[in-house]
Simulated assay, not measured.
Amino acid sequence: MKNTLIAGLALGTALALVGHAGAQSRDQIQIVGSSTVFPYTQAVVEQFANESGMAAPVLESTGTGGGMQIFCGGVGAQTPDITGASRAMTESEWELCKTNGVTNVTEILLGYDALSLASARSGADLSVTKAQLFQALAGEVEVDGEIVPNPYENWSQIDSSLPDQPILVYGPPPTSGTRDAWVELVMEEGCEAFPAIEALEDDRKEEVCQRMRTDGPFVEAGENDNLIVQRLTSDDNAVGIFGYSFLFENQDTLKGAAIDGVQPSEETVASGEYAVSRPLFIYIKNDHRQAIPGLEEFVAEYVSDEALATGGYLEERGLVPLSEEELKKVQETATAGTAMENPS
């Protein structure tokens, strides 16, 4: 890619960029971050390129945590302009950003997604509680009042109502926001059902409730959720954890599992009945807005009614949209480039 010296910037932006050694401009927007946000951003990339005739942004799926590390690495053309996140930026990530001079950042709430547990349509139906999922996936569990290494190898060993098949769950690695959300919304809540775990001291309880098993039944499958989808369609025993959008896009070959008696759907996620949902975000480096061609226009496309509103093309991809009032606030924030003061 041909690089040219930054010129014609507003003074504040120029100072911010030139203050970093070797900062040069480029002709393509660079975006990193969450694998869950990836398909939504990809749709905006396609729409932007088709409508504007400008170069399509370069989009990389790095996971939420990995994207934050890269995004917060500094200001300048050697760093990305936007990162996607399936959770809000953490305080430690914000401190990293500030340490590296990334202090002018706009946080955009896109809408809502759910965590889904899915399998091939040809596989067994699965309806599980959060407590049963904890028993299936935790490194340590409670058995007869004792905390022991997880002994469960089959779903039916946990409860006779569950399928008599091996526990084989493909899921995200620790760098993924999906993993963070799964631990918070499923594992930590599921472990509350077990008195011996609840009685542990705080640090030990946190360790038991959060640590996923590493003995085989849970497999870290990387940041590419499409690879999980491929594995599910080739193995009827396999189950996958990913954002609802991937289940939505692959519902011809996959089916969702009910969690606590509720199936994932746009309606149950929007209503809150399906209690494994989370907000999705993008973060924009405002010091790049005037330096990188098309960045302002791309942000405008991302928050447009055509993309984010009810009936927009991102809802068609599985995003649960914001209310009209929420969307209006988001659009005003994005247009003004309002800088966040602290993480949400």
Results as ranks from 00 to 15, higher is better:
G53M: 13
G76Q: 07
E91D: 15
D113T: 14
T83V: 13
S116G: 15
V128D: 07
M68K: 04
Q78K: 14
P80K: 06
G73Y: 01
E93Y: 00
E91R: 11
S61Q: 13
G65I: 04
Q78I: 09
V58D: 13
L133P: 02
V75H: 05
T103L: 01
F38K: 08
D113Y: 09
V58G: 11
R121C: 08
S52G: 10
C72P: 01
A124L: 14
Y40T: 04
F71K: 03
S61E: 12
A77G: 14
P57W: 01
F134C: 09
G111L: 02
G65R: 05
P39F: 09
A131W: 13
A131C: 12
D125G: 14
L126R: 12
C72F: 00
Q69V: 10
I70F: 07
E51I: 09
Q135R: 15
G66H: 04
G73E: 02
P39Y: 08
A120K: 10
E51H: 11
R87C: 09
G66N: 08
V45D: 11
W94N: 00
Y40G: 07
P80Y: 03
A114C: 11
F134Q: 10
V44K: 03
M89C: 09
P57F: 02
A131R: 13
F48A: 01
Q42S: 10
T79W: 14
G66T: 06
T90V: 04
E107I: 04
I82S: 05
P57K: 02
G111F: 00
N50H: 13
D125F: 12
G123E: 10
C97F: 01
T64P: 07
M89D: 01
L133T: 02
A131V: 13
A124W: 09
L137I: 15
E107D: 13
